[in-house]
Simulated assay, not measured.
Amino acid sequence: MTTESATQQWVKSSHSNNGGSCVEWAPATASTTGTVPVRDSKNPDGPVLTLPAPAFSAFITGITSGEL
Protein backbone atom coordinates (compact mmCIF):
# COMPACT_ATOMS: atom_id res chain seq x y z
CA MET A 1 0.00 0.00 0.00
CA THR A 2 1.28 3.47 -0.81
CA THR A 3 0.21 7.10 -0.52
CA GLU A 4 2.07 8.33 -3.63
CA SER A 5 -0.70 9.02 -6.12
CA ALA A 6 -0.20 12.57 -7.39
CA THR A 7 1.13 11.62 -10.83
CA GLN A 8 -1.48 8.98 -11.62
CA GLN A 9 -4.56 9.63 -13.74
CA TRP A 10 -7.51 8.41 -11.67
CA VAL A 11 -10.85 7.18 -13.05
CA LYS A 12 -13.95 6.77 -10.90
CA SER A 13 -15.70 3.43 -11.16
CA SER A 14 -18.83 3.50 -13.31
CA HIS A 15 -20.50 1.50 -10.54
CA SER A 16 -19.88 4.20 -7.93
CA ASN A 17 -23.06 5.96 -6.93
CA ASN A 18 -23.86 9.29 -5.33
CA GLY A 19 -24.27 7.59 -1.95
CA GLY A 20 -20.57 7.84 -1.18
CA SER A 21 -19.38 4.42 -2.36
CA CYS A 22 -16.72 5.74 -4.70
CA VAL A 23 -13.74 3.73 -5.89
CA GLU A 24 -11.11 5.02 -8.30
CA TRP A 25 -8.41 3.20 -10.21
CA ALA A 26 -5.49 4.26 -12.40
CA PRO A 27 -5.75 2.37 -15.72
CA ALA A 28 -2.66 3.94 -17.33
CA THR A 29 -0.52 2.80 -14.43
CA ALA A 30 -2.09 -0.65 -14.66
CA SER A 31 -1.23 -0.97 -18.34
CA THR A 32 2.40 0.09 -17.87
CA THR A 33 3.23 -1.70 -14.61
CA GLY A 34 0.94 -4.72 -14.47
CA THR A 35 -0.42 -3.58 -11.11
CA VAL A 36 -3.71 -1.81 -10.49
CA PRO A 37 -3.76 1.10 -8.02
CA VAL A 38 -7.13 1.52 -6.27
CA ARG A 39 -8.21 4.22 -3.82
CA ASP A 40 -11.21 5.75 -2.09
CA SER A 41 -12.24 8.85 -4.05
CA LYS A 42 -13.45 10.52 -0.84
CA ASN A 43 -9.87 10.39 0.46
CA PRO A 44 -7.58 11.07 -2.53
CA ASP A 45 -4.56 11.77 -0.31
CA GLY A 46 -5.08 8.54 1.62
CA PRO A 47 -3.57 5.14 1.04
CA VAL A 48 -3.60 3.39 -2.32
CA LEU A 49 -4.08 -0.35 -2.55
CA THR A 50 -2.02 -1.85 -5.39
CA LEU A 51 -3.17 -5.19 -6.78
CA PRO A 52 -1.67 -7.51 -9.41
CA ALA A 53 -3.64 -7.04 -12.64
CA PRO A 54 -4.86 -10.68 -12.78
CA ALA A 55 -6.19 -10.46 -9.21
CA PHE A 56 -7.98 -7.19 -9.95
CA SER A 57 -9.46 -8.68 -13.13
CA ALA A 58 -10.72 -11.74 -11.23
CA PHE A 59 -12.24 -9.46 -8.58
CA ILE A 60 -14.08 -7.37 -11.19
CA THR A 61 -15.31 -10.51 -12.96
CA GLY A 62 -16.63 -11.87 -9.66
CA ILE A 63 -18.41 -8.62 -8.84
CA THR A 64 -20.04 -8.19 -12.26
CA SER A 65 -21.14 -11.82 -12.43
CA GLY A 66 -22.73 -11.63 -8.97
CA GLU A 67 -20.36 -14.31 -7.68
CA LEU A 68 -19.01 -11.97 -4.98
Rank of each mutant, 00 (worst) to 15 (best):
T2W: 01
T3E: 10
E4K: 04
S5G: 15
S5T: 12
S5D: 07
A6S: 12
T7C: 02
Q9V: 14
W10N: 03
V11C: 11
V11A: 12
K12P: 02
S13F: 02
S14V: 13
S14Y: 05
S14H: 10
S16I: 07
S16K: 05
S16V: 05
N17A: 11
N18G: 15
G19E: 11
G19A: 14
G19K: 10
G20C: 09
G20P: 07
E24M: 04
W25N: 03
W25L: 11
W25P: 01
A26W: 07
A26H: 08
A26I: 10
A26D: 08
P27L: 12
P27K: 11
T29R: 10
T29V: 15
T29F: 14
T29H: 15
A30K: 06
A30T: 10
A30S: 14
A30Y: 06
S31A: 15
T32E: 14
T32H: 11
T32F: 03
T33W: 04
T33G: 05
G34A: 09
T35R: 09
T35I: 05
V36Y: 05
V38W: 00
V38G: 04
R39L: 07
R39W: 06
D40E: 03
D40M: 04
K42D: 03
N43E: 06
N43W: 00
N43R: 10
N43L: 08
N43I: 08
N43K: 10
P44N: 04
P44D: 03
P44C: 01
D45R: 10
D45S: 14
D45C: 00
G46L: 02
G46M: 02
G46C: 00
V48L: 01
V48Y: 01
L49R: 01
L49F: 07
L49Y: 01
L49K: 00
T50W: 01
T50K: 06
L51H: 07
L51D: 03
P52A: 12
P52I: 06
P52F: 06
A53N: 06
P54F: 09
P54E: 05
A55S: 13
F56Y: 12
S57E: 12
S57F: 00
S57Y: 02
A58R: 13
A58F: 02
A58M: 08
F59T: 08
F59C: 05
F59M: 15
F59I: 06
I60P: 01
I60Y: 09
I60E: 09
I60F: 08
I60T: 14
T61L: 12
T61V: 14
T61A: 15
T61N: 12
T61P: 00
G62D: 07
G62S: 10
G62N: 06
G62M: 08
I63V: 15
I63D: 00
I63H: 12
I63E: 11
T64I: 12
T64H: 13
S65C: 05
S65T: 15
S65R: 13
G66W: 09
E67A: 15
L68F: 15
